Computed example of a mutant assay.
Amino acid sequence: MQTISDNNSGAIREIFGRDKALIGMIHCPPFPGAPRYRGTSLDAVYDDCMRDAEALVGGGLHGLIIENHGDIPFSKPEDIGPETAAFMSVVTDRIARAVGVPLGINVLANAPIPAFAIAMAGGAKFIRVNQWANAYVANEGFMEGRAAEAMRYRSLLRAEHIKVFADSHVKHGAHAITADRTIEELTRDLAFFDADAVIATGQRTGNTATMEEIEQIGAATHLPLLVGSGVDKSNIAEILKRTNGVIVASSLKKDGVWWNPVDPDRVKAFVEQARPALEL
Rank of each mutant, 00 (worst) to 15 (best):
A55E: 07
A209F: 06
I26A: 01
A133D: 14
N110D: 13
M88Y: 03
I177F: 09
E238I: 07
I177R: 03
P73C: 13
A44T: 15
D19Y: 06
Q273P: 02
S168T: 15
I66K: 00
A249C: 14
N244T: 03
N207D: 15
K268M: 01
F74R: 03
K233L: 11
I214T: 14
I177P: 00
N8I: 11
H169T: 11
P264F: 04
R51M: 09
P112I: 07
E213D: 14
Y37G: 00
H222T: 15
F192E: 13
K171Q: 12
T40C: 02
F74N: 01
E160F: 06
I177Q: 06
L278Q: 09
T84D: 00
A124M: 05
N139Y: 12
D167S: 02
L156A: 14
E67I: 03
A98S: 15
M143T: 15
R97N: 08
G58W: 02
V227W: 03
L156R: 12
V170Q: 02
I177M: 12
A111T: 01
P73Q: 14
E213F: 00
G256M: 09
A179L: 04
S75M: 10
A176E: 11
P224T: 11
A121W: 02
A148I: 14
R158V: 13
G245V: 09
A138R: 13
G63L: 05
A274C: 08
A21I: 10
E140Y: 04
W258F: 14
S89H: 07
N7K: 15
A179E: 11
P30L: 00
H27C: 04
M120W: 11
V91P: 02
D93P: 00
T243M: 10
T3D: 10
L225D: 01
S5H: 10
R36H: 14
E78Q: 14
A86P: 01
A150H: 08
Q216L: 14
E215H: 09
D6T: 15
A111F: 02
P224I: 10
R18E: 11
T201F: 01
L157T: 07
T243V: 12
V137D: 07
I23L: 02
T178F: 02
A109K: 14
R94D: 01
R152N: 12
G39I: 08
S9M: 05
A96T: 13
